[in-house]
């Protein structure tokens, strides 16, 4: 399998190629300036946004997120964050498609409870089915359950995005073996979405063979989000190269790096 992959191969999602394998969110930043600078530093080409009620009576000159993160420059990936039912998630995606002039790539997430923000798998499956029938290209946030990941792929999701750890937890890739199992069977891109805390977590996800990593809090909640965005860009590239290079096998005992022959002793 490794031999078939070329180092320069881009990430392909729903037929579109991307050079960057880091996808980033736009939440939790101090202001839109910081959002813009962090996203530029991350090198991301796919950027997630949330869909919310317009604040009626707000200052009409207040800048809009999409003025800063322009849909002409970035692939905007509207999410269904905050939705706890398939119905709400589908409704949100339809609003997003109207908002973005027919753009039909969405990040589906249907959450189960507020404490864990764990995906509600049955509602996720139901929403995915409706959205795919309705012509959406669905990148789906799910648990790290290999059977559920496969089912979502079989349904026609364009990417499956298991969590590394709960959203915003920064706990890293808690179950790399499950991610490996998901990757073994996958024919669509598998991206780790949620749980990354620092650069090494992103590298681990990529070393496992993930096609990309999606994160928000790890960058936005860093002391210096712009520097962390750069670190994440490098970490994802690093992990991808290491995956393509193919790591050495692990051995229990030492193996000398210098030749034994020609020793003066």
């Amino acid at each position: 399998m490794t031999q078939e992959i070329h180092a320069e191969s881009p990430l392909v999602i729903a037929g579109k190629s991307y050079q960057s394998r880091l996808l980033v969110g736009t939440g939790k930043y101090k202001d839109l300036d910081e959002t813009k600078l962090a996203i530029e530093a991350s090198g991301a080409e796919i950027v997630t946004v949330a869909v919310r009620r317009t604040n009626i009576g707000q200052n009409p000159d207040e800048p809009n997120l999409l003025d800063v993160i322009s849909p002409e420059k970035y692939t905007i990936l509207p999410n269904t964050a905050g939705c706890y039912t398939a119905k709400d998630a589908v409704r949100t995606c339809r609003l997003a498609r109207e908002l973005l002039d027919g753009h039909d790539l969405v990040k589906l997430e249907v959450l189960g409870d507020q404490k864990t923000l764990y995906p509600d798998v049955t509602e996720t499956l139901s929403a995915a089915e409706t959205l795919i029938k309705d012509g959406f290209k669905v990148m789906v946030y799910t648990t790290d359950d290999p059977l559920v990941a496969k089912r979502l792929e079989d349904m026609g999701c364009v990417a499956v995005m298991p969590l590394g750890a709960p959203i915003g937890s920064g706990l890293g890739i808690r179950n790399p073996y499950n991610i490996k199992m998901i990757l073994e069977n996958a024919k669509v891109p598998i991206l780790v979405d949620a749980g990354v805390g620092t650069a090494s977590d992103a590298t681990i996800a990529m070393e496992l063979g993930c096609e990309g990593v999606l994160m928000n809090t790890a960058i936005a909640a860093a002391r210096d989000p712009i520097l962390m965005a750069k670190a994440m860009r490098l970490a994802v590239e690093c992990g991808r190269d290491a995956y393509l290079a193919g790591r050495m096998p692990r051995k229990l005992y030492a193996s000398a790096s210098s030749p034994i022959e020609g020793l003066i002793v």
């Binding site: 969110g25 939440g27 946004v49 949330a50 869909v51 317009t54 964050a81």
Partner: peptide
């Protein structure tokens, strides 16, 4: 009536 827009989110 619901009027929505894009805001920051992950």
């Amino acid at each position: 009536v619901e009027v929505v827009q894009a805001i920051g989110g992950g």
